[in-house]
Write a protein that binds this DNA or RNA. Sequence first.
DNA 1: TCAAGCATGTAGGACAGCTTAACGGTATTG
DNA 2: CAATACCGTTAAGCTGTCCTACATGCTTGA
Lengths: 308, 308
Amino acid sequence: MLDVRRLQVLRAVVTSGTVTAAAAHLGYTPSAVSQQVAALERQAGTALLERVGRGVRPTAAGLLLTEHAALISAAVAQAESALADLRAGRTGRLSVRYFATAGSTLVAPALAGLRAEHPGVRVELELSDPQDPFQEVADGRADLAVVVQARGHAGDGCRLVHLLDDPYAAVLPLGHPLAGKEVIDLHALSGEQWVGSEPPGPCLEPVIDSCAAAGFSPDFVIQSEDYATAQGFVAAGLGVGLMPRLGLRNQHPGVVVRPVRNPEPLRVISAAARTTALGQPALRSFLDALRDAAATGGRWLLRSGQPG
Amino acid sequence: MLDVRRLQVLRAVVTSGTVTAAAAHLGYTPSAVSQQVAALERQAGTALLERVGRGVRPTAAGLLLTEHAALISAAVAQAESALADLRAGRTGRLSVRYFATAGSTLVAPALAGLRAEHPGVRVELELSDPQDPFQEVADGRADLAVVVQARGHAGDGCRLVHLLDDPYAAVLPLGHPLAGKEVIDLHALSGEQWVGSEPPGPCLEPVIDSCAAAGFSPDFVIQSEDYATAQGFVAAGLGVGLMPRLGLRNQHPGVVVRPVRNPEPLRVISAAARTTALGQPALRSFLDALRDAAATGGRWLLRSGQPG
DNA sequence: TCAAGCATGTAGGACAGCTTAACGGTATTG
DNA sequence: CAATACCGTTAAGCTGTCCTACATGCTTGA
C-alpha cells in the first residue's frame, strides 16, 4: 500500500523542482525529504526521481504518482471541507420527532428559524406517537424530539430542555351552566359526564392526577383520539372535557373554553436530544428556535387564558 | 489535516460495526484501533463514534468521513493500479529517436514487435539528426535512440546496446571500369572523383578513416545530404561513392553496388538508453525487438553483399 | 447475580521519522 | 583552470508515534 503522506512529499518535490525547495516548503530538512522519497521508491518498487545536474527530475512513474497524489489530495481536502460544513451546521440532516398539537405552534416556527440560520440543513420531520420518542432519540433514529414529559423519565444519555408549561382548560358546550363563570374550579366538574380527548399516556396523566387532587375521578363516557374530534363531541352535548391549550388553538364554534384552577392541570412540553449530539450547531439552533417559539406561544396561551 | 491512515481505521470500524472486529480485520488490538479513532476525533474536532450498548455507532460526522474515506481509498487504489500498469509495461510512453536509414530496416519492425507485446504503450517517434541524440536521451527528452556510434562516446549514464555492423559499399555508375569486379579494393578508388553522401559526423568518419588506412584522402566534388540523392549524382556520372548498406536498400537503377575491402568501412549502429530506464519492460521489449530486426536485417545485408 | 463481551484507558517497548553532520558531485565565478 | 557554493544523499542519533499487554468500567445474557 502506498503511503499517502509520502505521496504528498513527492508531489512537493516534483512541483518545486528541487528537494531543498520542497523541504523548505514543508518545513523539513532536505535530508528528511530525500529519505521519504527513497522510502516511497522502495514501496513503489521503481525509481521516482532521477538526478540531473544539480537537481532532480521525476521519472515517468514519479510523474504518474505525482498526478495521482494531486487527486488524492483533492479527495482529502473535499473530505475536510465536507466535515467543516457539517461541523459549522452548513450541511447535515436533522431528524425531528414531534406530536400533533406541537406542530403548528412550536415546530413550524422553529423550523422557519432553523431554515433562516442554516439553509443547508435537511430536516426530516416525522409525526410520532408521543409515548416514547425518547427511545428513538436515544437509539439515534432521531436527533431531537418534542415530547410531553412523563413522570418517570430520567434522561438516558438524553438531555431534556424545558419548552413550555401547557395548561389544560375546561371545554364546555354552549349554554352549559358553568359557561358563565370566568374561571372554573376543577371540583365543579366532578359530577359531569366526560369526553376523553387522548389515549392513556403522558397527556392524560395530568388530567387524572389533577382530578384525583380535586377529590374525584372523571367519568369518561366516550374516548376520542384527537382534540378536534373531542371538541365536536363536547359541542354535541355528550359531556365536558379538559384539553391542553395547545390543542385548542383551533376552537370549535359550539364550545366555550374556560380556565381551570384548584388545581390547574399542566403538561410539561420539552425537547429531548442526545447529550453527545448537543454540540451540533444546527441542533442548538433548532433548540433555540423551539424555545423562542415556546415563549411567544406561551404569551398567546396566557392571553387566551383571560378571555375578554 | 486529516490522517488518511486513521480514516481507513475509522472505515474499518464503521463497516465492521465493532472496534474488536475492525481490529481483528486490520491485525491490530482493539486498543490500538480505539486510540487511532480517538486521535482522529481529536484531529476532526468532533466525535465520530458513539457508544451504544456493547458496541459503537458512527455519528453523522463519522459516517461522512467513512464515505469520504472510501473515496480516498479508491483514489489510492487507482494510483496503485496505474503504477502497476506502468511497471508492467501495459501503459506508458516511449520516446524514440532514430535516423533516416535506420527507419525502415530497424525501427519499423521493432515497433511492430513492441505493439504486439505491449499494446498500451504509446510510442513517440522522432527523426533526429544523428549527431547527438545521446544528449536527448541523457537529458530525458527521449527514452531511446538508435545512433551511429561515434568514437569518443563513452556513455554518460547511458547504456549502448550493439545492434548492427553496417558495412559501406562502393556505388559506381553503370559502365564504370570497376563495375565488372566482384569485390573492389578501396585503394582502387583513390583516383576517382567522389560523391559525398553525408554531412560531417559519425557516418562520414568511417569513410575518411578507411580511406586514410588505404593511403589516400577522398576527393569530394559534391556533397549530398541523403543517400537517394547521392545515388542520383553517381548515376549521372559525377563520381563514385561509399554508402552504407542500410542506405542502399532502395537502389537507383543507374548504379551498381559492389562490396569493398582492404579495409571495408563499417559504421556501428547501436541503441542508447539511460541505465536507470533500463528496467522498464516496454523499453526492454523494444530493445529486444530492435536486436531481432538487426539480426534479420544483418542477414539481408550479407546476402546483398554477394550479388548474384 | 454472575459471567462474557466490548470499549477504553495506562504503562512500556519497538519502530518510524526527523535532525545534525559529513560526503560526492555539479554548476558558477574569479 | 581553480575555487566556491549549492544540491542530493548517507550515516548516526534522538524524539515522538504507535502498537501491545494488562486492567477497568460498562452492558447484556444466562
